[in-house]
Amino acid sequence: MNAFFASLARDRVFYLFVAPFAALTILFGVWPILLSIQVSFTASATALRPNPSYVGLANYAAVLADPLFLASLWRTLLYTVLSVVANLAFAFGFAVLLDSALLRRGALFFRLAIFLPVITPDVAGYVVWRWLYDRSFGAINAALKMLGLPAFGGLSSADTAMLSLLIAELWHHAGFYMIIFLANLAIRDRALEEAAQIDGATAWQRWRYVILPQLRPALVINTVYALIQFLKTFTVVVVMTKGGPNDQTNFVSYYAYQLFDQARYGEATAMATILFAIVIGLSLTAYRIGDREPGQ
């Protein structure tokens, strides 16, 4: 009996330890999410009143019938796929290069150069990129002109705006994925490679069958992180394009925010819930594919 009370007393102190963490999680996480889901079932005009009028799934129906939203969702998915592939390919390639025996001197400098943008405030980085792309101020078009190359439309042309955001975001994010690949490369079992080499495996075979399977954890983590990251793309749009030109960069996060700004709370939160479902669905799928044993 004494032991029981002792363990109860011990448990009690852990509730005390966890209380501030739980309070912040509930106040600024769980509550706002529930509130947002609740608002998505109410009429926008009454959403903030104490007794909002509930409209069932009307906001979801309105959102899913909105051609602008569907176009925005499609562009968000396209941008996400392109960004995930570009970022991971670049990060993987650069990590392998830095890890190889080819670049023994200066590896730290290269790593810092690629990683520095990750800790640079995104607003500051994107503000600089916005002006780098500028037709009259920008260094990019000035450099292209100097090299005798055709001008780059940058943010002002509907054809190149998405690509411009992708480049700026790659600059900001790729270093993060790179250090995760590097961390994974550093803990791999090099004895396996030597054994494979002794057994006569070619460089390609060593990569394909010995090293790559060991990089699976980094690949899964990076894919999930990048998916979540780029589905939510927001800051770069606010700083550089405001959704333009011609809605070419009006991704879901920004579109929902615009609706919120116009006090269309019901539709804005319905969009947020839809995006949330997509993020969770895709991340779980990526985890499940990644967790499957190779060969199964």
Binding site: G29, P32, I33, L35, S253, Y257, F260, A268, A272
Partner: peptide, 15 residues
Amino acid sequence: FLVTIMYPYMLLVIP
């Protein structure tokens, strides 16, 4: 907590 960090951050800030 895990659900909160999965929620699109920018859309969490609004509620």
